[in-house]
């Protein structure tokens, strides 16, 4: 089985979000970039398939040279080879097209992406890839088993879950649950050393066609002051929620 894991390179969850150039660009100064958390779950699940079912695992990112440290981290965790499509990831649709092209040419059986990137929260790339490839797609995937070319996946739905079966090729939008938090793989020294010798191939983009453009950013309006209520005075809280906030 050939697996491709899509890795998006995102600001660490503790990052302060600021903008530069008259609010037209994300300010990366002082920001640490990491493997998108949803992709970390997917990558760890892919390692399980590698260890238990002898799968090969490649990782890919669409982005500039600055994302290579993130790809090297994925190699250190255990991926066999990495690809970087050399173009800034500004439009989800365009990213999906680039990823699909590589996926098609590499004849991957399983493509693991994340439910969403925590920067733009698009939740669009995996579904678009599936549509581009004519492959099956399971979003919000919280469990995945593969036996004889048949995948059994569990998808989180609003208020519950759904079990699905599908033939391969399959694209998933994965998240926590694919593996437990405590089972997430982190690179060790040996992995880091080995990663240096693994191939990281840079590919040129096939087209530059985009469907959207970001014009400018804005921060949320500052929050008004909090109203404190004494613990002995629950009636006052109920009154505020009913008459002032009008939410009960």
């Amino acid at each position: 089985m050939k697996i491709l894991v899509c890795i998006s390179h995102v600001p660490d969850t503790t990052s302060k979000i600021n903008f530069t150039n008259d609010n037209t660009a994300f300010d990366t100064s002082g920001v640490q970039f990491v493997i998108n958390p949803n992709d970390e779950f997917g990558l760890t699940r892919a390692m399980w398939f590698k260890e238990k079912q002898n799968a090969s695992v490649d990782v890919i990112n669409v982005g500039g040279p600055e994302t290579e440290s993130t790809l090297r981290k994925a190699l250190a965790i255990g991926a066999d080879a990495a690809f970087r499509v050399n173009t800034p990831a500004t439009d989800g649709y365009a990213v999906a097209k680039e990823l699909s092209k590589v996926a098609k040419e590499g004849h991957y059986d399983l493509i693991i992406a994340g439910r969403e990137s925590i920067d733009y929260n698009g939740g669009m790339v995996p579904g678009m890839m599936a549509a581009e490839l004519g492959a099956s797609f399971v979003n919000n995937c919280i469990s995945l088993e593969i036996e004889n070319n048949t995948a059994t996946a569990v998808r989180e739905i609003d208020g519950g879950k759904e079990t699905l079966t599908s033939s391969l090729p399959l694209v998933i939008g994965g998240q926590k649950g694919l593996v437990e938090e405590s089972d997430l793989k982190i690179p060790n020294m040996r992995g880091i050393m080995m990663a240096r010798k693994k191939p990281l191939t840079v590919l040129e983009p096939s087209s530059q066609q985009t469907t959207s453009t970001t014009l400018k950013y804005e921060k949320p309006a500052p929050k008004g002051a909090i109203k404190m209520v004494e613990a002995e005075n629950i009636d006052e809280l109920i009154d505020l929620l009913h008459n002032e906030a009008k939410v009960i």
């Binding site: 600001p11 979000i17 903008f19 925590i118 920067d119 733009y120 929260n121 985009t210 469907t211 959207s212 453009t213 970001t214 014009l215 400018k216 950013y217 804005e218 921060k219 949320p220």
Partner: peptide, 16 residues
């Protein structure tokens, strides 16, 4: 739209 998990908003032009 909201971006960065509600830490910011952005204005996006859809060109299709």
């Amino acid at each position: 739209r909201s971006v960065f998990s509600n830490k910011a908003f952005c204005e996006t032009e859809i060109t299709t």
